[in-house]
């Protein structure tokens, strides 16, 4: 083990962490406005990615078209999830929404395996160039694209929330749904827009992940839900900045764990972290009163 290895791990982790960060941003936006967990978030992304790869396989769609299909697909499936799992239940029936989203998870996986029965499916690669050499460190160009896209989207979301009327309406709904309705905000529509936006962001993340792998299985759904969930919890429920920090940190932790303890440990880190967070540190990085999560959400994002 050398300093170069450590630096290389950190760099690799940062790049993979960028995709976690995107997942967590979408997750946290949905949690913020709904105050309910959307377990079907990952499978929504998977559905979008599968539609994209189906277009790639059967029509030979170019990469850019696949990207568009993935984003639109994820957004539409997100709308479907919102209609079925969240719109019909009020905030008083959080468990109902969560269980319903679990049911949709199963449904979406089933639908995906009918669309593409093979376990492993090809996905158009983003950039097939040689890794860049920066001194002793190696850097994949497509990873760099992933990091850049993450920073771009995170910046755009932050701008949206801080500066636009829509963003302020989203924050008003997160803060005080009833008062938001009172000042004339169509609360349900703001929730729906946020949900669709978050699903589209998830679609971008799903595309980048599948493209850097060059292949995709339906397991990406569960993968996205768990990684996004852990990254969100690590950053602090409902905080966009926390989601980004949590995603990057999770990526770095995993990369080091893989290097020191072996590849089979990689996913255990995420699961172990989720347990530790839930048990001891539910407020996450952006520190809040651990037990008063709804309040915490209100103050952040």
């Amino acid at each position: 083990m050398t300093a170069v290895d450590l630096a290389q791990n950190t760099l690799d982790g940062l790049m993979v962490g960028a995709s976690y960060a995107l997942l967590a941003v979408g997750f946290t936006l949905i949690f913020g406005v709904m105050r309910r967990l959307n377990l079907a978030y990952g499978p929504t992304i998977m559905a979008g990615v599968y539609l994209g790869t189906a277009a790639f396989i059967s029509l030979g769609a170019p990469t850019l078209v696949v990207l568009v299909v993935v984003i639109i697909g994820a957004a539409l499936v997100g709308l479907y999830v919102e209609r079925l799992c969240f719109r019909p239940f009020g905030e008083g029936a959080r468990a109902a929404s969560m269980v319903a989203s679990f049911a949709l998870w199963m449904q979406l996986e089933e639908a995906a395996t009918h669309l593409l029965p093979q376990h492993m499916n090809p996905f158009p690669p983003l950039l097939a160039t040689q890794p860049l050499e920066i001194g002793p460190l190696l850097l994949r160009a497509d990873h760099l694209v992933m990091l850049a896209a993450t920073l771009l989207i995170a910046g755009a979301v932050t701008y949206l929330l801080a500066r636009t009327k829509l963003g302020l309406a989203i924050r008003a709904v997160i803060d005080q749904p009833r008062a938001a309705a009172i000042v004339g905000i169509h609360v349900e529509r703001v929730m729906m827009l946020t949900f669709v936006l978050a699903s589209a962001i998830g679609g971008v993340a799903g595309f980048l992940i599948a493209a850097t792998d060059g292949q995709v299985t339906h397991m990406i759904g569960m993968w996205a839900t768990t990684k996004g969930l852990v990254a969100m919890m690590l950053g602090g429920l409902g905080s966009v900045k926390g989601a980004i920090a949590g995603g990057l940190l999770l990526g770095i932790l995993e990369a080091h764990a893989q290097w020191f303890l072996g590849p089979q440990v990689r996913d255990m880190v995420a699961w172990g972290l989720l347990f530790v967070l839930l048990a001891f540190w539910p407020g996450g990085l952006m520190g809040a009163k651990a037990l008063d999560r709804t309040m915490a959400v209100g103050r952040r994002v």
């Binding site: 924050r171 803060d175 009833r178």
Partner: peptide, 15 residues
Amino acid sequence: RLFGQLTVWQNLWVA
């Protein structure tokens, strides 16, 4: 029931 995390100005802007 104010929007506590928005500024005073933003509270009115939303309205």
